[in-house]
Design a protein around this nucleic acid. Structure first.
Lengths: 157, 157
DNA sequence: TATTGTTATACTCTATAACTATA
DNA sequence: TATAGTTATAGAGTATAACAATA
């Protein structure tokens, strides 16, 4: 067998990519979400569904458009996602007095209990990653991330 | 018309979500990628395809498994993604002397030129977001993100 | 036996457009 | 006319499993 040099994966030169904020955001998100998904598996729900449940815990009675806007989910996609949760009895739509087009969204008791079962695990997950960031690292990170997501920090206009 | 109070979108209480590192990573990534996608539209390519082109610019001759591993794309998915670029003449597979299973991946001249056309726009995009982060903010952010994506910082084992 | 890559397939998420019903 | 929500549909991205060829 000839001694063809097999390139080592570690020897891949990162180049421009690792200098890009967006690429590094994606890598970090993959790591954090991978861990988070493992937790949600225990209740067989997805991250997007968890976000819906969580925002309804804090804001019972929200309308679909509001919940969707707050989470960055389009109206046309929110409906089917919510249907899945409703079929499992975790949430419910209630009619709103005064506007027969809109519906108020609520957690059921089953939904509330599921979130309760996840609370400790989610807290542990969060603390694991906060620990990686060191003292004050998390609040520093969140501050920087808000500058990226908040259009008010865009000075290019 | 009755004076039903229509809840204001701004009044949605964020709750737990905005305390989660993962959720804030996602929001920031949506903002940065939204801007980035607008740039890539001009050449009609996707972010994942850009990443493939970019890593081949720096690492010509990479094998599929290596490129996929480096970018976090599974082997079974890398092939079809690469096919799309190859059909457009931006990249090519070449046989490797000594291993008839593997193929070396290369940019074509067309692929190199496309990356060249994007360079200035990508740099401008990057500077826009770096500006939002303030002096030293970007290197601070990248340092924190690496702690999240690098398993070596996981102290929970 | 292990590795490189392909094929098939399914699911989630995202995006757009056309539509109904109410306001 | 505008708004709340639904339906249909298409595309990208991700995941697993089975497979062929080669090492």
């Amino acid at each position: 067998m000839a001694m063809i040099r097999k390139p080592d994966d570690d020897a891949v030169q990162p180049g421009l990519l690792t200098e890009l904020i967006g690429y590094n955001l994606r890598r970090a998100q993959m790591a954090v979400f991978g861990d988070f998904h493992r937790i949600l598996e225990s209740e067989d729900i997805r991250a997007a569904q968890f976000a819906i449940l969580e925002i309804l815990r804090r804001n019972p009675g929200l309308r679909q458009t509001q919940a969707g806007t707050a989470l960055g989910i389009k109206t046309a996609n929110f409906g089917p996602m919510f249907d899945g949760l409703e079929r499992r009895g975790l949430v419910e739509r209630r009619s709103i007095a005064g506007d027969r087009r809109a519906k108020g969204l609520f957690l059921t008791d089953a939904g509330t209990h599921m979130l309760g079962r996840l609370d400790d695990q989610v807290t542990a997950h969060e603390q694991r990653f906060a620990a990686r960031l060191g003292l004050g690292g998390k609040s520093q990170l969140l501050g920087l991330l808000h500058r990226l997501s908040d259009p008010a920090f865009d000075t290019s206009y």
